[in-house]
Design a protein around this nucleic acid. Structure first.
Length: 1064
RNA sequence: GCCCGGGUGGUGGAAUGGUAGACACGCAGGACUUAAAAUCCUGUGACCGUUGAGGUCGUACGGGUUCGAGUCCCGUCCCGGGCACCA
């Protein structure tokens, strides 16, 4: 054993007695066993089919340059504990880790520095790995995956190719091969094909299909493929030079960086996720995921049941407007129609008289950014096309408007407006003076607002007059369907997912362009590796960075000039949509995962990660999995049966208060001038106006003295004031702000000066000596006396603060505190305010796990992370509390190693108390791990340790099972003690102790006794006493009789083993 | 506005409808020490009373169900998150 060092790294003190050599020394233990585990390959996982499998998975991280803070490993630690626990329970456990290593930050860094993203990513990964290794995880690193590794993205591209080769068949309810679709087109055209396809897919016969050119056929097939290029309005982010998917845009700006986002028409690869909308929705019922995630996914998919209705357009026999409505029952109240400005019919049906107005509105609407549109939701805008639509039920003509409250991208981009029932329609009708017709007798106050009620019976509603909602809807839909004018319909909010990014650092799309038709490259040419480029920026002509790659062209056959590759890359969510299968078989170069491996590991049993991926990664990965399932490549529709979100660990920020100008005035008034007021009479309070151009800060009227607070630097201002004071025939005292700062802890200094000024007749007072300080910080416990607006709040690095007290020595060395002075409290301390905030560099509240491990050891760090509270809940990190866990580990160690390095455990048989303590712990810890309650597990270990110490008990029969139970939480100390107990193999391969309920039983039971639900005392009875005996005994107790006070007992409730309640 | 969570000591948090505050931090007092740190012991929801009794209140607020409610039901308030011209 190496010599003991104190935990903070100081050299061992000479005076330390020899006995301390064997104190708990996490540093030595941890590095020793980490090495041993590596040498023994303790964590290597076999695809061993003889044991039951357990697959636990963490969402893999993006390796950012900032490294890990203490919040990141929370989920990893929890899953590590479960993984080790399951292994002790006899499972073959897969607990892998890897990196989501494509991403924008590395590319931005490349643009700035020219360093290839692969290099900076490699470096970041190395740092992550070091930090992870420090914590003692049981990851099998031989299974590590990286999405940016060509051997990995080979299979991302392969899956993309399969998507391209499939369409979604509505009859089969699953993806089928395009090949088979082509065959069907050749036989019957597409008349009988029920498949998910573009809205504008034409109908054609077999003959028409056969007459089409190859190119025409290919372009038609794109309307069916599950991934396809299309011209569409996308979220274009000019600042990032790329498009973003809907989930990457929040409140009209990019989620990362907060840059503005525009609508732009572009040709983009798209994923037909809408085909799976229903299955993705239904699948949510079969998985044990947090309700909030499921709810967000349901919202995002946004299924609504309604009807589509066809309105003809007056004077345009060839045009009709389809609308989607969820309230077809309100159709008799439809008094106008509104189209989205982008609607295809707008220019066709607009009358000449209205054309100028409509064109102007369309142009205006197109020019508006998302953020403008969203922030001006309340403003009613629109234009009348002059055209009229005909209500199919009434034959009435209703005007057609355009307005951008109707979204082109939802439904058909047109609505029938029912102002009596819909508030937006009501607003529009009121603004444009359109009729509002009540349709239900229960509608109220229609002159104030719309009333969307479904109560009552219909009025003004033709065929449904007098009916209720439930009667009306089927009748209307029936009529529409028999007339061929509409049908019941389901509409989704979910859009197809944009799959192209105009960026470099992503998977190349395995496609080349031949005569404007996208073609897949040959499978043997996978992976299509990212080419080298000279710069990571778009070309001068605005093409993506890949256009810079010289000679990067595809040659399907030798010779020729080749074809251009697709130049956009895949988005961040491509690799993460299937990576969980790669861990099962990470080195396979024949398939993304062998059938044997996937049959053994099946799916993820427990998935752990942050809730921020609710609709991004977690929805797209379900989509890809459903697709892979359709192809028979994976065994289940849903890849993760159970999902847990770990809560954020927040930081405790320290805030220092910097004085603003008005502070000095308030300070002078409160601390210095008030006594003078009594003595020297009336005085203007701050802010009084003495003459037009000037406001003196303070003025003693009786002495003609004015006081002005200015900065040393404001020489001009000093001169102006001086002249003004002359003119006003005031005596002037200049107090320099900087002097106030210098002398802030000495208010007497100013009192003296002011007294001097008041009592003299001199015209002008000013300090001669230059001040030393320029900035003032005020101790937080003093700020309450001043108005909050006197301070700006500044984050201070938490390493400078202890117990809210700032270390002034250290602080003064920082640039932010140079030329600063501190106003300290009565005890000479400068205190900061504490705030709970997200942990981030910019808030200077980041706690690095490396520091925690260096100071307390990995075992302690792991246990403290767990001890903080439930995994799922957000909670602040407070380093102070870690000492509790550290002293627990020392005390646990102390059960084994005594003074003078004596080995304490004996082979004596344990007594009943000791067995009860152990088995109580077995019961609690086993139950709590199963329900993922790690914080209470740590408490149970503390209780066991405290109780054994009280008994001064150290028996192998008790301690050995305790070591095994502790191993998942604190693997290093457990491994050390396990070996000292005489074992040769790893504690990881021990067996989880088995609960014997016999040991939990006691001879006697203490019943708390309540009278009318109020606790009055307790009583000890034999454990096997019958309820009747307990009742009899209880009623004899002194404290019971005293409390009953002679009142008759109505009933006695005895809950066996629990409680007694006497009702009087 | 709609939909999810959640409100328990000074702090983090415990509590299958059955003794509210486990376990820790912090704080206070004590022991050890020349001293400090570390360590160990004791106390610690509030209030009244005792100074070896005991009592009252208490889990955001107001009701209800129950022998018994932090826990279940109804209503209100507050905090966090998500969605939001989605027809």
């Amino acid at each position: 054993m190496p010599l003991h060092e104190t935990i903070d790294g100081a050299p061992p003190a000479v005076s330390l007695p020899f006995t301390n050599l064997m104190e708990y020394a996490p540093r030595d233990i941890e590095s020793k066993w980490q090495r041993w585990w590596k040498d023994q390959r303790t964590y290597q996982v076999q695809n061993d089919t003889s044991k039951p499998k357990f697959y636990i998975l963490n969402m893999f991280p993006y390796p950012s340059g900032a490294g890990l803070h203490v919040g990141h490993p929370l989920g990893y630690i929890a899953s590590d504990i479960v993984a080790r626990y399951k292994r002790l329970k006899g499972f073959n456990v897969l607990n892998p880790m890897g990196y989501d290593s494509f991403g924008l930050p590395a590319e931005q860094y490349a643009i700035q520095t020219g360093i290839h993203p692969a290099d900076s990513t490699e470096q970041n990964i190395r740092r992550y790995r070091e930090q992870l290794d420090n914590i003692g995880f049981c990851f099998d690193w031989e299974r590590e995956v990286r999405t940016s590794d060509p051997a990995f993205y080979h299979w991302t591209q392969w899956i993309f190719m399969r998507l391209f080769e499939h369409y979604f068949d509505l009859e089969a309810g699953k993806a089928l091969r395009i090949k088979d679709l082509i065959a069907r087109f050749g036989e019957n055209g597409n008349k009988d094909v029920r498949a998910v396809c573009d809205e504008d897919t034409p109908q054609f016969t077999a003959a028409e299909w056969q007459q089409m050119s190859e190119k025409e056929q290919q372009q038609l097939l794109l309307k069916y493929r599950l991934t396809f290029p299309e011209e569409s309005y996308v979220n274009w982010c000019p600042a990032m030079g790329t498009v973003l998917s809907n989930d990457e845009v929040k409140d009209g700006v990019s989620e990362r960086g907060g840059y503005p986002v525009e609508r732009k028409l572009m040709k983009q690869w798209s994923m037909r996720i809408t085909a799976y909308a229903d299955r993705l929705l239904d699948g949510l019922n079969d998985i044990d995921w947090p309700d909030s995630i499921k709810e967000q996914q349901r919202n995002w998919i946004g299924r609504s049941q309604g009807a589509s209705v066809r309105f003809s357009v007056d004077g345009h026999p060839d045009a009709s407007i389809d609308v989607f409505t969820t309230r077809v029952d309100t159709i008799y109240g439809a008094t106008f129609m509104v189209l989205a400005p982008e609607h295809a019919l707008v220019s066709r049906i607009t009358t000449n008289a209205q054309r100028a107005e409509v064109d102007a509105y369309v142009r205006w609407a197109a020019s508006r950014s998302e953020i403008e549109r969203m922030s001006e939701v309340k403003k009613v805008t629109g234009a009348n096309t002059g055209a009229f639509a005909i209500n199919p039920f009434t034959g009435e003509k209703i005007p057609v408007y355009i307005a951008d409250y109707v979204l082109a991208s939802y439904g058909t981009g047109a609505v029938m407006a029912v102002p009596s029932g819909d508030q937006r329609d009501w607003n529009f009708a009121t603004h444009f003076n359109l009729p509002i017709v009540p349709i239900l007798d229960a509608q109220q106050n229609l002159d104030q607002a719309a009333d969307p009620t479904k109560e009552g019976r219909y009025i003004n509603s033709g065929m449904i007059d007098g009916l209720t909602y439930d009667e009306a809807v089927p009748k209307l839909i029936d009529w529409l369907e028999t007339q061929g004018l509409g049908k019941g319909k389901v509409q989704y909010k979910l859009r197809n997912a944009v799959f192209s990014r105009q960026r470099y650092w992503g998977e190349p799309v395995p496609v080349y362009w031949k005569d404007d038709v996208p073609c897949l490259i040959d499978e043997k040419d996978l992976p299509l590796v990212l080419p080298k480029v000279d710069k990571y920026l778009p070309t001068e002509t605005g093409e993506p960075p890949l256009a810079r790659a010289e000679g990067w062209r595809y040659f399907p056959e030798p010779g020729g000039s080749g074809y251009e590759y697709e130049l956009s890359t895949m988005p961040g969510w491509a690799g993460s949509s299937w990576y969980f299968y790669r861990y099962m078989d990470p080195h396979n170069d024949k398939a993304f995962c062998s059938p044997e491996a996937v049959n053994y590991w099946q799916t993820v049993d427990w998935y752990i990660g942050g809730s921020e991926h609710a609709v991004g990664h977690l929805l797209y990965s379900r989509f890809w999995n459903h697709f892979l399932f359709d192809l028979g490549l994976v065994p289940e529709r849903e890849y993760a049966k159970k999902l847990t979100n770990q809560g954020m660990i927040q930081g405790l920020s320290s805030i220092a208060f910097r004085a603003k100008e008005c502070f000095y005035e308030e300070y002078l008034w409160i601390k210095v001038l008030q006594p003078f007021f009594k003595e020297y009479g009336p005085m203007q309070i701050p802010g009084s106006r003495l003459e037009e151009s000037y406001t003196y800060d303070f003025a003693f009227e009786t002495n003609d003295l004015v006081i002005e607070v200015v900065s040393w630097k404001q020489t001009d201002k000093i001169e102006t004031i001086r002249q003004a004071a002359e003119a006003d025939s005031k005596r002037l005292m200049i107090l320099f702000m900087e002097e106030l700062i210098d002398q802030i802890n000495n208010p007497g200094h100013f009192a003296g000066k002011i007294r001097e000024a008041l009592e003299s007749r001199a015209r002008f007072f000013m300090t001669e000596k230059g001040p030393a300080s320029e900035i003032l910080f005020v101790s937080h416990n003093l700020t309450a006396k001043y108005s909050p607006s006197c301070f700006s709040e500044l984050h201070v690095d938490i390493s400078l603060v202890d117990n809210n007290v700032l270390d002034l020595e250290k602080a003064r060395q920082l640039p932010m505190f140079q030329r600063a002075n501190f106003k300290v409290d009565a005890s000479g301390h400068f205190t900061c305010n504490q705030e709970v905030e997200k942990m981030s560099k910019s808030k200077f509240n980041v706690v690095n796990p490396d520091d925690m491990v260096a100071q307390y050891g990995a075992d302690c760090f792991r246990m403290y992370e767990m001890f903080l509270g439930p995994i799922e809940v957000a909670k602040p990190w407070d380093t102070k509390g870690i000492t509790g866990v550290y002293s627990f580990l020392r005390r646990f160690w102390g059960l084994f190693v005594g003074e003078n390095n004596t080995w304490l455990p004996t082979d004596e048989a344990p007594d009943r108390d000791e067995l009860r303590i152990l088995h109580n712990c077995i019961k609690k810890v086993t139950e709590d791990i199963e329900r993922f309650s790690m914080n209470t597990c740590v408490s149970h270990f503390m209780i066991l340790t405290n109780e054994l110490r009280t008994l001064k008990s150290s028996k192998r029969a008790i301690l050995e099972p305790a070591v095994v139970m502790l191993a998942p939480f604190a693997p290093h100390i457990a491994e050390e003690l396990w070996h000292r107990l005489g074992h040769e193999s790893s504690v990881c391969d021990a067996a989880w102790p088995v609960l014997n309920p016999e040991h939990l039983k006691a001879d006697t039971v203490t019943y708390p006794v309540q009278i009318n639900g109020k606790l009055r005392g307790d009583i000890e009875v034999a454990a096997d006493a019958k309820p009747a005996d307990v009742e009899a005994l209880v009623l004899q107790q002194d404290f019971v009789l005293r409390n009953l006070d002679g009142k008759p007992v109505r009933k006695v409730i005895v809950v066996p083993g629990r409680i007694v309640n006497i009702v009087v």
